[in-house]
Amino acid sequence: MEMVFRAIAIYLILLIVFKIAGRRTLLQMTSFDLILLLIISEATQQALLRTDYSVTGAMLTIVTLIVVDILFGFMKKRFSRAEQLLDGAPVVLIENGTPIDNKIKKVNVSTDDIMLVARQNHGIYQIEKIKFAILERNGQISIIPADG
């Protein structure tokens, strides 16, 4: 039973840490981020299994993590407030060609990040030609080009 509680605690801690780190973490992963993710996974594994390296212990931990994730998914579908709390809401970063600086700083995205997506996906080279740039819940930036 201790292993189940450990798994739930680690899941919640990782959820909070990645919520604080922000959606930008999902948007752009550098080689350092990959190394950090590997270190986190190793530390998490040690905290989850402690001295129990049995197959049964690993299976119990995996099942617990998946069940917690399914429960959170159910909560997000059933309660809109839970979805907002766990996943956040889309954030408008540019409106009618004008960057909204306080929101850009809050989500830790630069105008360079936005322009990269605008160039790659829409061939837009000027910020004024963006009607809306929206940071979606999944960490992606959506660009809606201005008319004309």
Rank of each mutant, 00 (worst) to 15 (best):
A9F: 10
L14S: 11
L15D: 02
I16V: 15
I20D: 07
A21Y: 05
A21W: 07
R23V: 08
T25H: 03
Q28K: 15
S31H: 05
S31V: 15
D33Y: 06
I35W: 01
L38E: 03
L38G: 01
I39E: 02
E42Q: 13
E42S: 12
T51C: 05
T51M: 14
D52C: 10
T56E: 14
T61E: 10
T61S: 10
V63R: 00
L65W: 14
V67F: 00
V68W: 14
K76Q: 10
R78I: 13
F79Y: 15
F79P: 13
R81A: 15
R81Q: 13
A82K: 05
E83W: 01
Q84N: 12
L85R: 04
G88A: 05
P90A: 08
P90H: 12
E95P: 14
N96G: 10
N96V: 06
N96W: 02
D101R: 12
N102P: 09
K103M: 12
I104W: 09
K105Q: 15
V107T: 11
V107I: 09
T111F: 09
T111D: 07
D113V: 06
I114D: 00
I114N: 00
A118T: 04
Q120E: 14
N121F: 00
N121W: 01
H122P: 08
H122Q: 11
Q126E: 13
E128C: 11
K129V: 14
F132N: 06
N138T: 04
N138E: 07
Q140V: 12
Q140C: 07
I141T: 05
I143R: 04
P145F: 00
P145R: 03
P145E: 09
